[in-house]
Design a protein around this nucleic acid. Sequence first.
DNA 1: AAGCACTTTCTTAAAATAGTGG
DNA 2: CCACTATTTTAAGAAAGTGCTT
Length: 128
Amino acid sequence: MGTGKKKIELKMRETEEQRMVTFSKRRKGLFKKISELHCMTGAETAIIAFSPAGKPYTHGEPSFNSTMGRFIGYNEEDDYDNDDTDTFKSLLEAIQVDDYWDPDELGSLKQKLKEICGILVSRRDDNV
DNA sequence: AAGCACTTTCTTAAAATAGTGG
DNA sequence: CCACTATTTTAAGAAAGTGCTT
């Protein structure tokens, strides 16, 4: 016999546990709404949400990567894998591990990411 | 096996939305 | 249009379940 939904203040949840559960539930609802937006309007979408523990959750339609690729302006002829969401995810995760990762490795990962972003941004600026 | 980081299930009320009539 | 109500959807609380790493 649950106590049912209660009214709560719109502020940071008090405990880590509350934050985790609320994150899980509300992310689910948010991603569902975004699916509906795509379904009803054809809008291409991409969203990233970092969990309280720092893990990135992505969602997008027709796919996260294709929408991100479109946003950043990559060329169609590039053989870019639209379904490989792990590509962006792993890059995102790489930035999160500052304190736990080997500094040299992190440095090179960040450098790679910067290079990739630089290439993509300049390509976008050239073509649009 | 234990611990972590979520995820889900259930009950129930809050909030959002659709429908109706002025 | 706005006010009111009926219906649907969302999510809080509590607790249990899942999958992965150590």
